[in-house]
Design a protein around this nucleic acid. Sequence first.
DNA 1: GGTTCAGATGAGAACGTTATCACCACATCG
DNA 2: CGATGTGGTGATAACGTTCTCATCTGAACC
Lengths: 347, 347
Amino acid sequence: MAEVARTAGVSTATAGRALGGYGSVSPEARTRVLAAAKELGYRRNDLARAVITGRSDTIGLVVADIDNPFFAAAVRGVSDAARAAGYEVLLANTDEDPHRERSAVDVLLARRVDGLIVAPTWGDPEHLQRAQRSGTPVVLLDRRIEGVDLDTVMVDNFEASRRAVAYLVDAGHRRIAMVTGGTRRSQVAPPGQRGVSTGRDRVEGFLRGAAEAGLQEPERYLRTAAGTPDLSQRATADLLAGHEPPTALFASDSRVALGAVKAIRQAGRTIPDHISLVAFDDADWTGVVTPTITVISQPAQALGRRAAEMLLERISGAQEEPREELLPTVFIERDSVAPCADDTRGA
Amino acid sequence: MAEVARTAGVSTATAGRALGGYGSVSPEARTRVLAAAKELGYRRNDLARAVITGRSDTIGLVVADIDNPFFAAAVRGVSDAARAAGYEVLLANTDEDPHRERSAVDVLLARRVDGLIVAPTWGDPEHLQRAQRSGTPVVLLDRRIEGVDLDTVMVDNFEASRRAVAYLVDAGHRRIAMVTGGTRRSQVAPPGQRGVSTGRDRVEGFLRGAAEAGLQEPERYLRTAAGTPDLSQRATADLLAGHEPPTALFASDSRVALGAVKAIRQAGRTIPDHISLVAFDDADWTGVVTPTITVISQPAQALGRRAAEMLLERISGAQEEPREELLPTVFIERDSVAPCADDTRGA
DNA sequence: GGTTCAGATGAGAACGTTATCACCACATCG
DNA sequence: CGATGTGGTGATAACGTTCTCATCTGAACC
């Protein structure tokens, strides 16, 4: 910059003003500086600027796995909203490992991000609260943490799941199973905080829906820790092979549904004749398989966008109470649910 | 840091050495500094460090759309390799807009990324060459640019496509269609550089395969500018409704395939009885639809990982000639291709 | 016992910006 | 005409680090 200033015949202060767009500069000085900068191939150093201003115009984004379609869409939403406001996005994956989440947050904080959007995984969220307290706003995406004062953008997983079960019950089903990832057993945490809120809420919605229908022992048909297609396939196969197999299945996300569909097919059963299926997430393929799958559609991209918007509000100094914002899900009826054909429905 | 130094009773220089892990510090001084830092809640400012060292330990990643499964996987690969080496990833989407690509590169350069991984879209690549020349290494991901000296990691799209067509020809098909996105018509660029190399190479592979089989006017069955499921669905419907409809279809990626499957189903045809299908990309759903889809599988995540590795080599000063690295595709035979049943196969 | 050398330390410069302040010229106003 | 702004400018401090250099200590070596 000093060289640009020299070439343009002004002080570095004036050159800085012309290049940085602050203060006031005469039109002629500005053009001279700009010309000199172009001639010399000058490129601004945003890092040095950030050191001075204390703002990096960057937000940190921490998700479990960008390669999961839900998060990919959410990241896209965050990215779009961020860029529209002149912010860049620093991305980190955790693979649901609390240790990686914590270290990712530490690194992003050291890089002086102006704010953080986190889809928190299961451990102690103290690092998130500390970040917020020390002046870096945090917005939770897709997952809430009880007893923590942070903005949160998500859907009503409990209610959506309860309704899905009610829908299956209305179709006459009584032996309704749920396959889900998330809720791990081998986990050290207070009971209320096990697993990820998304998984917990969906399981509780399932249990509530089952209870409301007076179903006996719904836990008998609940399979957790099946978060990948492969695990889900095995869990579903297990369910189908059991005594009094379920006549309907609720899959907690599209990857779980993928494994479930495979297992059902391999077991020689057909959807929806032998077993009905409802899944979370309107993945692209759910509309193209035979039969098409009835799903609870989540506005993944909009969730990301809203999270970014809320974060940007906080960054610009909004001081209201932390709020939990719920975006609506859409229940899309397709062809994977049929009335229960099983005579033993009373079982 | 000055306060930490004061608390620990050492100079800022020594505190810096203890905190920054450079130079040499006595064990006792180190422990005193670390204790003081912890007590004061000191958090290092990596931005200031980057200003001094000239290295930000950050790489910029520019792709068309993170919400596309191929790129999501590639980004994951880049991210993993980057983190393993202590680098962070700054992400940008272009939506295939050359203007956005250029401005994204400009912003990332201003943030002093140590290197760039770009899946280049169609316009003039001068900004990429300039970045490389001015000392920020650039690696091209998934797409090459002719006549440009940049490292590139991709697959052999031409050969994979040629083989896919040959496979269909071997099954007896003569009216083979291709639906693809990418190659736009309304584009201002020298003929050889229209569209994105991936799309061009696949089209040329298709044409070569057709030529080798002696097929007449293969262009008649070529539909470009159908990069989204919706556009692809329309293009496929159009093909099916035409005179002498194709008996086999080659879809240039999984999203195109999705639209094609929908169109085929809506037209009342079945795969593979009426029409065979081969698609690029082993999307998760291609193994679960009926019938399962025969695909050319790309190692998307490995492409990202290799791109990051090559970039890191350049960053650490490797000076060899730029190279183009091809990762192998895998042709996965499933159930969407059947021998041609059409009597008029000579047409 | 002097020379050499490595380890440890501090003072202060350096990195490339923005922030602060003082100053000037000039217009505006009463 | 003097007081009061206001836009433009430059010198220099400031940001929070790392880098450079000089100095000191003590051990090892012949």
